[in-house]
Design a binder for these strands. Structure first.
Lengths: 205, 205
DNA sequence: AGGCGATCAATGATCGATCATAGATCAGTC
DNA sequence: GACTGATCTATGATCGATCATTGATCGCCT
């Protein structure tokens, strides 16, 4: 067991997953390229088992495709793949907003925090993270744990990164709508769900 | 390797998962009860690895909870857990319906098949399966593979089974609404999404 | 008695090795 | 040369064993 990259002892599978995600989003592994379990295992100085575990996570995130007995390969993301995310997100977040508007009861402090941070963000990555955090906050505020689980399993961050990598960054400028949404939450506007829906869909290509 | 239950050679993990799901839905393992990897492995005459794989699937279905280094236990499903499914399903299926109405373009044959089969169903389990199949058809018809993937990952069948086990069966009588929905699809009614949403929510406790 | 650290058993996490399958390669036949 | 089947290779799937963590138990000290 070497120490190629200082893998500290806390959940090998998780760490390997992150390595693989970084590798895919950074383009180290090209779309369509095969990811061989043992090769990764040797490279990271670990066994095959935690690599398999990580790969199943990537499969759940739909970052890779696996065929029985034939291993995994990086998905060749089509524009359609990227576009498919938005209706699903929009539907989920509309549901979340409709649930959250009752629970928040006009208390929008948590949302405003993210707006402030987003305004202060400098680089693209930071803008993305804070923008996503705002949406995550709505989902959290829904109080529906299943909804949160499903939303998270979409791997929004990763897909957004991939989307940015493909097309030029176009996610700025929409920040103003976050303020509109927050105001709708503050006055407990029952139309906030549709507002969120439209907002999410406006990101779609 | 014994042959306790004729585990044929095609995806041990999948088969083990089914054994565990059956065990949980049938009540063999009580809520809160611990599921010990090696115990299952010995019982089924397999190794620990495929059992772990199966357990991760159950975790994704939220049938079990796992703590790091402390194993898995059957979730103690609260009424709230069961109730949480419906808003999420409703949101997803509304999205699906809105997408599907364009793609189907009034062709509702596939939907009608399930209505016919549902009408012919005899026992409760069959009613449930055909009823679910109708909803699955809508999701399939959306053409959005991500949506399908997310919907399937909800494990509707399992949760419905659990719901039936807890409360008396109350899912009959709603079948008529399936006909209404199908008609809405046939005439490409843009309100079909809301109709499906309301229909799904009507199952909620 | 109560608190506290050492010890132990159970078991999840990980490992290294083996088994089995899918493709690729090669030999033989026509 | 083209087709068929045997063989070989790479690799996923599975196994049995070991490492490491957790919570429980026990004995000691105050």
């Amino acid at each position: 067991m070497n120490a190629s990259s200082a893998l500290v002892r806390t959940g090998l599978g998780d760490q390997i997953r992150q390595v693989l995600i970084d590798g895919i989003t950074s383009g180290r592994w090209a779309p369509g390229e095969r990811i061989v379990e043992r090769r990764i295992a040797v490279e990271l100085g670990v066994s095959q088992a935690p690599v398999r575990e990580a790969l199943r996570h990537l499969e759940a995130l739909r970052l890779i495709e696996t065929l029985p007995n034939r291993g995994a390969r990086v998905r060749d993301f089509t524009d359609e793949d990227l576009a498919e995310v938005f209706p699903v997100r929009a539907g989920l977040e509309e549901t979340a907003a409709d649930l959250a508007v009752h629970r928040l009861a006009g208390q929008v402090d948590a949302l405003e925090v993210h707006i402030t941070r987003l305004a202060a963000a400098t680089d693209t990555g930071e803008v993305m993270r804070h923008s996503i955090a705002f949406h995550r906050e709505i989902v959290e505020a829904s109080g529906n744990r299943l909804l949160r689980s499903v939303w998270q399993s979409l791997g929004i961050e990763v897909w957004t990164t991939l989307s940015l990598r493909r097309r030029g960054t176009e996610l700025c400028g929409k920040a103003a709508e976050h303020t509109d949404i927050t105001e709708a939450f503050r006055r407990q506007d029952p139309g906030v769900g549709r507002l969120v829906h439209a907002h999410v869909m406006s990101y779609a290509p």
